[in-house]
């Protein structure tokens, strides 16, 4: 029963990892790809961590899995922002196709600054 749940969760996790990869390949620009990478992979890891935790033999092992997942979550949320900021400053990575015009294209208050985020 628990093995079946683990199997199901791992397969679901792998599907989300696959979705993240498909998103990187299919999505048109750097920032959209970053969405796929961050969110889908994060969920995939969460599901696989859950699957592994079901098989764990001690609470310490479960705590370790939770710790790993929490650190990856923190890193994903932080690095996604950093990569997004750099990609914005450089106008999209080379070979990423047309990145849209950036936040300046939005009808918000114009700031007059060319260089976002300093």
């Amino acid at each position: 029963m628990i093995d079946a749940a683990s199997l199901l969760l791992s397969v679901a996790g792998l599907i989300f990892f696959l979705a993240g990869t498909v998103g990187i390949l299919r999505f048109p620009d750097t920032h959209s790809r970053l969405h796929a990478l961050t969110k889908a992979d994060n969920l995939g890891l969460g599901l696989i961590a859950l699957a592994v935790a079901l098989q764990a033999e001690s609470w310490a092992a479960i705590a370790k899995i939770v710790l790993i997942w929490a650190l990856v979550l923190l890193a994903a949320g932080t690095s996604a922002q950093l990569v997004a900021r750099v990609a914005l400053q450089q106008g999209g990575a080379p070979g990423s196709g047309r990145d849209d015009a950036g936040p300046d294209a939005v009808g918000s208050t114009p700031s007059g600054q060319r260089d976002p985020a300093g």
Binding site: L34, A80, Q81
Partner: peptide, 12 residues
Amino acid sequence: SLMPGTLVAGTR
């Protein structure tokens, strides 16, 4: 950055 459809690229 982990919520549906949004990603923050710094502040200005």
